[in-house]
Simulated scan of single mutants.
Amino acid sequence: MSQGEAGATCLVVDDSRVVRKAARRILEKHGFSVREAENGQEALAACREALPDSVLLDWNMPVMDGLQFLQAARREFGPDRPVVVFCTTEGAMDRIVTALESGAQEYVMKPFDEEILRDKFVQAGLLQQDDAA
C-alpha cells in the first residue's frame, strides 16, 4: 500500500456523493486524511477552517463551480497551496488550459480509477513514485 506524506490532507470537492466516496476510498488507501465538500463555496469555507495539502476538484457544481473556487483560493491562499487536481468530465483542450492557467497543478478526466488518480497525485508531487507501485 502506498502512502501520502505523513498526515497529508485532501479536500474532495464534488456535488456527487458517489464520486466523493469513491475518491475518499482511494485517497485514504494511500494515506490521506480526507474531508469532503459539495461545492466551491463549502470548499472555500473548509480551506479557511484548515487549509488542506491538496484539493481534488470537480468543475461543474452548483453554488460555486470548480473554476470559481480555484480562482478564489489562489487569490486568498497563493499560487502553490493547496495543490489542486481538477477531476472533471470537461475534456476540451481549452478547458484544460483554462484550469491549468488558473492555478491547477494537474487535471484528471472522469471516470477515474485508483491507478489514474494515484498517477496524477504522483505527478502533482503528492505521492512518491516508488510508493505508488
Rank of each mutant, 00 (worst) to 15 (best):
V19H: 08
A23T: 09
A23N: 02
R25K: 14
I26W: 14
I26C: 09
E28H: 14
K29L: 14
H30Y: 13
H30S: 12
F32G: 01
S33G: 09
V34M: 01
V34Q: 02
V34I: 02
R35P: 00
A37M: 13
A37Y: 09
E38Y: 07
E38R: 15
N39W: 08
E42T: 01
L44I: 06
C47P: 08
R48Q: 15
E49V: 10
L51I: 05
P52I: 03
P52D: 04
S54K: 04
L56N: 03
L57C: 07
D58S: 07
M61N: 15
M64C: 04
M64K: 15
G66L: 00
G66M: 03
L67Q: 10
L67V: 09
L67F: 11
L67D: 07
Q68D: 13
F69M: 13
F69T: 07
L70I: 00
L70V: 04
Q71S: 08
Q71M: 11
A73N: 01
R75G: 05
E76G: 06
G78P: 00
P79W: 01
P79R: 01
P79G: 05
D80I: 02
D80H: 10
R81T: 15
P82L: 00
P82E: 04
V84S: 08
E90N: 12
G91L: 01
A92Q: 15
M93R: 15
V97K: 13
T98H: 08
A99R: 02
A99Y: 00
E101D: 12
S102V: 10
G103Y: 04
A104T: 03
Q105A: 13
Q105T: 11
V108T: 08
M109C: 07
K110D: 08
K110R: 07
P111D: 06
F112V: 05
D113C: 04
E114H: 11
E115V: 14
E115F: 11
K120N: 11
F121V: 09
